[in-house]
Design a binder for these strands. Sequence first.
DNA 1: TTCCGTGCTGAATCGTAGA
DNA 2: TTCTACGATTCAGCACGGA
Lengths: 369, 369
Amino acid sequence: MSTVAVMVRAMGDFPDNAVDQLHLGDCVEVMGRLPAGSVDMVFADPPYNLQLSGDLRRPDNSAVDGVDDEWDKFQDFAAYDRFTTDWLTAVRRVLKEDGTVWVIGSYHNVFRVGAKLQDLGFWILNDVIWRKTNPMPNFRGRRFTNAHETMIWASRRQDARYTFNYESMKALNDGLQMRSDWSLPICTGGERLKRDGRKAHPTQKPEALLHRVLMAGSRPGDVVLDPFFGTGTTGAVAKRLGRRWIGIERDPDYAAIARERIDQVTVAEGAAVHIATRRDEPRVPFGSLVERGLVRPGEILFDQQRRWSAKVRADGSVITADSKGSIHQIGASVQGAPACNGWTFWHVERQKRLVAIDVLRQKVRAEMA
Amino acid sequence: MSTVAVMVRAMGDFPDNAVDQLHLGDCVEVMGRLPAGSVDMVFADPPYNLQLSGDLRRPDNSAVDGVDDEWDKFQDFAAYDRFTTDWLTAVRRVLKEDGTVWVIGSYHNVFRVGAKLQDLGFWILNDVIWRKTNPMPNFRGRRFTNAHETMIWASRRQDARYTFNYESMKALNDGLQMRSDWSLPICTGGERLKRDGRKAHPTQKPEALLHRVLMAGSRPGDVVLDPFFGTGTTGAVAKRLGRRWIGIERDPDYAAIARERIDQVTVAEGAAVHIATRRDEPRVPFGSLVERGLVRPGEILFDQQRRWSAKVRADGSVITADSKGSIHQIGASVQGAPACNGWTFWHVERQKRLVAIDVLRQKVRAEMA
DNA sequence: TTCCGTGCTGAATCGTAGA
DNA sequence: TTCTACGATTCAGCACGGA
């Protein structure tokens, strides 16, 4: 993507004081004041509605410091559903048409959130499992160790042209497609924010999780909004990766911690956050291979198994007994397929071996560079 | 458990012709004729409501044989919700007070099912992820590989004294608590039922999955009901493990296949034997070191003698003056070698000394173990 | 007999730029 | 907005057949 494109994306419709800022207040209210259709991605870590009763103790009788905060208490499922509808509706308004939302949750709340997303017209793209490499064990031995959380990735509408940095994800996974299950440790050690020796927030998410989310579904300069900002993991990672961010947090103490944290983050240099794509390569028409003499007019193209063949014409079109057209059209035609990538389908004979014409295209591109 | 207790559990309230039988018909109707409060466990694999449109082709132009059966078609979410309410209500009636239900689904339907379970008063115990070791890839590169399905395990009521064979699960997991994510292959090869050389059912589940479900949440002699029996995986595994089973299936063809299959199953003698296999060391992509902050984007990698260097990018690829790629590719490239183990070749500087990135990988593996 | 290369397949909501 | 043409896109496991 060109520098200009980055800048255009980055400007958005925001007043200067809206972006790269933490907004103190209720997320529905604050989102209501932001311009509609202006946000590229939302990452939301809403209250889980844990419904814990009593305290939990380890086998050594030490107490587990669970989530017992007021913000996680709801009267019943109906109250939680109203809350969910309200904030998702506000998210829907601020999102761009092609924007996406990520929501993380556990079995306590994620089914309700997922159903509501669908009811509101969002289109689920994947559910992604955060598989915790070091979860808290189940102390009572009455259930399976709760070793994962679920994220839902959804676009604002069914036909959205959403951002997905396929090549970046593939690179991050050593050349294999990234799967819908991610193994990452929980947030501990030096990364875990502390106040007076105790954890500053009960559900701080690891930066690695947000790194992958933002790398997958946003581009440098994009605006990423987090309506339940907490201690600002989303903002910290967004800043480091060259994304713009909007944080909304109700609790002034969390907000103060988040501001301090994000101020200390340095932005990674441009090249490091570049999004790899294959489309960066210049288009090479098949005809230019003929022009440059890499393929001769009249030469025969074959598929890998020599089941089909076609003759090259001087203008770069190819011809069979009963039709002519581009390498793609004829490739599709002979196979009876709806489409075909002629570059990888067709081959020429060189020293008695078949060579894909895509290899010749690579030579042209190398010459051009 | 005493022999008497097993016999009492096994007798239930069923007429002789209800148990260890496949019932042909609509599951709501059939369950309505069974005695209330009589079933120990329900395993349900309902239609997923996939909403596929058009055809999908692999990069080699072969067509993917998707689920296009009539039984997976619903008018809209409301129709699917009514269907879900109906069968879950019938399940609730036939379940014992302390009974449990397992439902498997994908992101297309599982959120709606989970929310409805909660609305009807079921109490979710865990959501369990079936992580597929060999999922179908994402052919268009537009999403994450859909590499898992979700199971919800719920008791009929909040305070149920449900069955959970904690020690069996622990044994099955080499002495560690069983986690909520299970890695198992999909159903292929000899286990996959065929008719005329084609798959007999589009969504046959692997027996290993049912083995773990039944081992975890039922006892010998328990009655296990499957309202969407298909080709009878639940019945086959239940029979082998000494559970009694009730199968309900609407399609006579599937039912015939299931009956034939279960007839051939022999009941296991005593305790079923599980062969524990030692797992390979988990694969750690270089990108996850970047995600976890062990290597910074923009940081420089050196070989042991500092003859070559490369810069790390946020997606885990590395770059030199004239090429980019994985740690292995670039390691080979700078040396002019055909191949290279990037893990031992590249180093980072830590406290003025070079540390092989393989050392950092060991840290990640230690965390994962 | 073993090894290796080829081919097939699996619950999948699987384009996009430019005219 | 609609249409056309380009051309991007796959992993693991099993079966089979030839060397």
